[in-house]
């Protein structure tokens, strides 16, 4: 087999990784993740923490984002939120935020009663300075969370919530009225206006109609879809360059590949670290389940899979070639 495009969560990727490394396979992983991993057999086309979480927090700290000084780090209790919050906590401290101004809280999987947590956030927010919530709440728990937020009268203009796993597809089954103004950070939004995106959206709409997919009446695109799409095309370009399906040759040809992405930038595969250079966008939820892009990075950002904000990462090299020789 020449290549696999897939895996959805970090858990599934970690499970297949030993097989790919043993048999020298090739995997393209299209979802944002917590970093702390690098393999010569994997290309990561989703965002590393410095391409999603950290810019989002920087935005909320800025005047435009509301100048947040106090932080609630809220997540579902598993590896991605815990690691991300560890990185964010260290990052916030490096920016001079004090321990007392950070509140970290976790809920079990499938938690659906957010009354006390919202009450805690309210109390925390009243104890001085502008507060923002960084949510790594997983999937299904988001709806009860946002519903409670809206019903308890905590508006985005008072306490904005930025989420890292809520996108167009997640908002499909949701009444978005109470969510308006809350934020999401991604490397692509369906609402981006550029020729590449228009063409891509049209292609996808035609495809869903032709194949009679469910929801063909309302085709949506989102960030992981874009990341997977870039992955496939880059692989094709690399194969054409290498004139071979051989994993070693394709991997070498992948270095420095560029692709005009639907996000509107020319995304480049880093020469060394197997991660894409991506632009970061912050969007505010609109009433129709789409996002208003309110901020974006000046240009593409290089990924740092080994976050400098986690102790012990200083010595780790983010280049799989070097990693391999060290083993």
């Amino acid at each position: 087999m020449a290549v696999v495009f897939g895996c959805w969560t970090s858990v599934s990727r970690k499970s297949v990784l030993p097989v790919f490394e043993e048999l020298n396979g090739l995997l393209f992983y299209p979802v944002q993740y917590e970093g702390e991993e690098i393999s010569k057999n994997v290309f990561y086309t989703g965002a590393a923490p410095n391409q999603q979480a950290i810019p989002a927090v920087e935005y909320l700290m800025s005047k435009d984002g509301g100048g947040a000084k106090r932080w609630v780090l809220l997540g579902t209790d598993y590896v991605y939120p815990r690691t991300t919050n560890k990185i964010l906590r260290a990052f916030l401290k490096s920016k001079g935020v004090q321990e007392a101004d950070i509140m970290e809280d976790y809920t079990p999987f499938g938690h659906s009663d957010y009354q006390t947590i919202i009450a805690k956030i309210k109390k925390f927010a009243s104890e001085g300075k502008k507060t923002a919530v960084v949510s790594t709440i997983n999937g299904d728990s988001n709806v009860p969370f946002y519903k409670e937020l809206g019903n308890q009268g905590l508006k985005a203009t008072d306490v904005p919530v930025v989420a890292f796993s809520v996108g167009e597809e997640e908002l499909r089954g949701v009444d978005t009225k109470p969510l308006v103004g809350h934020l999401a950070a991604w490397n692509y939004f369906m609402s981006l206006k550029n020729p590449e995106n228009d063409a891509w959206k049209k292609k996808w709409a035609d495809y869903t109609k032709a194949k009679k997919l469910p929801y063909a009446d309302k085709p949506l695109t989102n960030d992981p879809m874009e990341a997977a799409y870039i992955g496939v095309y880059m692989w094709k370009q690399a194969v054409e360059k290498a004139k071979s399906f051989e994993v070693g040759k394709v991997t070498a040809a992948m270095a420095g590949q560029t692709f005009k992405a639907p996000s509107g930038i020319t995304s480049k595969m880093d020469e060394k670290n197997h991660h894409l250079h991506k632009a970061v966008f912050i969007g505010e939820v609109k009433g129709d389940g789409q996002f208003n892009v309110v901020w974006k990075t000046k240009g593409p950002v290089k990924a740092q899979p080994w976050s400098p904000f986690i102790a012990g990462n200083e010595k780790k090299v983010d280049e799989p070639a070097l990693m391999a020789t060290k083993k």
Binding site: K147, G150, G153, R172, G173, V174
Partner: peptide
């Protein structure tokens, strides 16, 4: 109905809250 969640909207008299 599909594997994804479906949206059930609160009627307006059940949205918001009483202070």
């Amino acid at each position: 109905f599909g594997a994804q969640n479906v949206g059930v909207e609160n009627p307006s008299w059940m949205s918001g809250g009483i202070q």
